[in-house]
């Protein structure tokens, strides 16, 4: 099997590369910096004896995504795409600079939608895995556009799940809480972090499931449940997510 991993060079993306390669899958890894990709490619090829191709792409630019990732031949040869990708800005509030808003929405939603739609136009069989965020469940004073684009992404994944119910397309969507990546490193968090290693194993284990939504770590399930049923007027007085 051959999988495209977008956002492969660090955190969850890197972990997914190792998990899929360990299970004898060839990879196409995609990220912004060729140095990181070459290092990862070399390590994986030497340790697991699989083939790894690299693509340098910038999801914040529509033109770049079109140029680098909209490749018919590549889509034909891959069996699935994983999007362990996300862009965050520290001062992501309502009045964020318009260029940054555009970048956030592109990297977290529209580029993923563009790549996925193109993949689906060539394939009626395969795996698509998206990653959202618990922050997408409740807008708050920070991560405004990040949260909004992650909520949009979840909705998009639900839609492609419905649209492809008759095809052999497997859709997984993981809503992530705190996980042990650089984004959460050193931050004072109200709940423990989940392990990227565990998550990547879970993604691999579930790769043949038709349509599935998960929360990771799963202790977020009751929290999200309460966030959904509590009135917004009550919630605005509490800083529920500290990120």
């Amino acid at each position: 099997m051959n999988y495209l991993i977008v956002g492969a060079s660090s955190g969850l993306g890197r972990e997914l590369c190792y998990t899929f390669a360990k299970n004898n899958n060839d990879l196409i890894i995609c990220s912004r910096d060729l140095r990181d990709l070459n290092a990862l490619k070399s390590d994986i090829e030497k340790k697991f004896n699989v083939e790894v191709e690299t693509i340098v792409a910038d999801l914040t630019s529509k033109e770049n995504v079109k140029k680098t990732l909209m490749n018919k031949n590549m889509f034909k040869k891959i069996d699935g795409i994983l999007f362990p990708v996300g862009l965050m800005f520290e001062k992501d509030k309502v009045n964020l600079d318009i260029e940054k808003i555009d970048k956030l929405i592109r990297a977290n939603f529209s580029s993923i939608a563009l790549i996925t739609s193109t993949f689906l136009s060539y394939k009626k069989k395969g795996l698509i895995v998206g990653f959202g965020s618990v922050s997408g469940y409740l807008g708050r004073e920070l991560n405004t556009y990040y949260a909004a684009s992650k909520r949009a992404l979840e909705s998009y994944f639900e839609s492609i799940g419905f649209e492809n119910k008759k095809n052999d397309i497997k859709i997984q969507f993981y809503t992530l809480g705190y996980i042990d990546t650089n984004l959460s490193f050193g931050k004072k968090l109200i709940l423990p972090k989940g392990s990227t290693q565990k998550l990547s194993k879970l993604v691999y284990k579930n790769k043949n499931k038709k349509l599935k939504k998960y929360f990771f770590p799963n202790w977020w399930v009751p929290i999200i449940f309460f966030l959904k049923i509590l009135p917004l007027s009550f919630l605005v007085n509490f800083n529920i997510f500290k990120k």
Binding site: S9, G11, R14, D33, R35, D36, A39, N182, F185, G186
Partner: peptide, 9 residues
């Protein structure tokens, strides 16, 4: 402490 994962970091 910082934990770079990428060359540009």
């Amino acid at each position: 402490l910082k934990k770079p994962e990428k060359y540009r970091e």
